[in-house]
Simulated assay, not measured.
Amino acid sequence: MLSVAIDVGPLHGPRTGVGNAVAWSIDELRRLGAAWGDEHEHGDAEAQPFKVQLLPYLTSMRSRVSPPTRRLPLPAAAAHRLWQRADRPHLDRWLGRPDLVHGTNYVVPPTRCPRLVSVYDCWFLEHPGDASPDVARAGEILRRSIGSGAHVVTSSQATADRLREFVPTDRLDVIHLGPPPVDATPSDAAMPSATPPRFGHLDGASFVVSIGTVERRKNVPSLVRAFGRLAAEHAQARLVVAGRPGDDQAEVDRALADLDPATRARVDTFGQISSEEKRWLLAHATALAYPSLDEGFGFPILEAQQAGVPVVASSAGSIPEVAGTGALLSAPLDTEALAANLHWVLTSDHQRQILIDKGTRNLDRFSWTTTARSYFDLYARLSAP
C-alpha cells in the first residue's frame, strides 16, 4: 500500500479557498477509495488502480486533533523558523514513515522521502511587502524546499508559469481543482426559504456582488470606482461587497468616500457572511464581479456559473484559464473597461443569457473525480523507486 502523509492544517480554523481546495480534494480521494489513517477498507478497485493510505498531519499546537491526525512535535512558528534555514529535522517518524509527503499549503516538512508541495498563487512572491511575516516565511521555505528537490503541484497553468519566474523548476505538475460541491453552492433546493434579515432591501433589486476577503489581491477599490462611473446610467442598480475585512479595507473605505453621497448610499458592505447568505446573494445577483489582480484558481467564478450568474472579471492570473468563455474580461487596472462590462451585463438580457449559457458549458471542464485521479497518478509516479 502506498502511504501519503497529507497536511490537513488548512482544514482547521476559518475556512479559506485553500481550505476548501484541500477539503474537497481529500473528500474525493476518500470517495475513490483512499484509506484514511489506519482504515484499510477501499472502494471500487476499478475506480482506483492502486491502493493509497492517507496519513493526515498538521503543524499546530492550538488546533484540536483527534486520530488518525498526527500533530508534528514543533509549534508551527518554531518549525517554520527552523525550515527557513535548513531541511531539518527530518520528521519521517512523526509522519508515520510515509512513501510521500504532501504539503497542501505552500510548506512541506523536511523528510527523507519524496515531497510534494501545493502552490495556489504567487502573489506573496511577487509582492513580498504585502505579505505578513508568517506568509513571507512560508515563501522562503517554499523556495528552499523546491531548491532541495521538492516537487510542486499548482492548481492552474498560469500559476505554474508564474512560479517558474520566481523559482525555476522542472519538477512541476498542474492539476485543476473541481467546482464547489453542489451542496455548497446556490440552488433552488439549497436557497434559504426567507430573505436574510440584513438583505431585505436587496430583495427584488438589481445588484452586482463581490464575494471574498477584502485584500489587495481582490482589487475591490477598482470595482467601487467602476460602479461610481456607471451609477448614473443605472439609477436602481446596487453594489454589494461581502467578505471579511482584510489588508485593503482602508483603500476600499477611501474609494467609497470618493463617491457622491447618492451613489455611496447604493453600495452595501456586509463584512463576513454565512454560507446561507452567500447562497442567497448568488441566487439573486445580476452579476458577480471578480476584478482580482491575481488568482491561482478562482472558486467564486465556478460558484457563480453553477448558480447561473454572469461573471464580469479581470484577465489576471488563472481567471481566463478557469472562466473560459463564460465571463467578460478586462485588464485588472482598467476601471473604464470594467465599468463598460458591468454596464453591458446590467443593460442586456441577451448578453447575460449568453454568459450564463457559456458558464454552464464551462463547468464541464472541471471535475473533482478528475482532480483526485490526477493526484493518485502523481502520488504513484513520485513514489516509484
Rank of each mutant, 00 (worst) to 15 (best):
Y375S: 06
D38V: 15
S155L: 08
H343A: 04
A339C: 06
P320G: 15
A262N: 10
L116S: 13
I273V: 13
P98D: 09
P310D: 00
C113D: 07
T195W: 15
V153Q: 15
P320A: 07
I175L: 02
S155R: 03
A194Y: 00
P68D: 14
E39T: 12
T269I: 09
G296H: 02
V153P: 09
P73W: 15
A257Y: 05
E303L: 02
L293D: 07
A242P: 12
K358C: 14
Q236P: 01
T360L: 15
A285G: 07
N219A: 00
A331M: 08
L342P: 11
A23V: 03
E41Q: 07
K218I: 02
G271Q: 13
L172A: 05
W280C: 07
A242V: 13
R217T: 00
G326L: 03
R62Y: 15
T213W: 05
T263V: 14
P75C: 13
L95Y: 04
A34P: 14
G271R: 07
D183P: 00
L338I: 01
G271C: 15
T104V: 05
A250L: 04
G298C: 11
D294Y: 12
D134M: 11
F207C: 02
R171L: 14
V345Q: 04
L125S: 08
T269H: 06
R143A: 00
A184G: 06
A304W: 02
R30C: 01
L293E: 13
L55Y: 08
T59Y: 09
R171G: 12
A250R: 09
G326D: 04
F166L: 08
L259K: 02
G204L: 06
L293I: 10
L338S: 05
P186I: 01
P221H: 00
L363V: 10
L293Q: 13
A285M: 15
D364T: 14
A250C: 03
R244H: 09
A184I: 01
A283M: 04
T369M: 12
D188I: 06
R229T: 08
V224E: 00
N341E: 03
R264F: 15
H40T: 15
R266L: 03
I26M: 03
E165N: 13
D253V: 10
A21Q: 02
I319F: 02
L11N: 00
G9Y: 08
R352M: 04
L29E: 00
N20F: 09
T269W: 10
S318Q: 00
A45V: 09
T335E: 02
P179V: 07
S374V: 00
E39N: 13
L302D: 12
D253I: 12
A231Y: 03
Q48G: 12
A77T: 03
T360I: 11
I141P: 09
G19V: 05
W344T: 11
V119R: 05
Y290E: 05
V240A: 03
Q157N: 08
G96Y: 09
L74I: 06
P181E: 11
P128F: 06
R266I: 01
D349R: 10
D161E: 10
F166N: 13
Q272L: 11
G139I: 02
N105M: 12
P221Q: 07
R254W: 05
L177Y: 08
D130Q: 10
V65T: 05
H127G: 07
K278G: 03
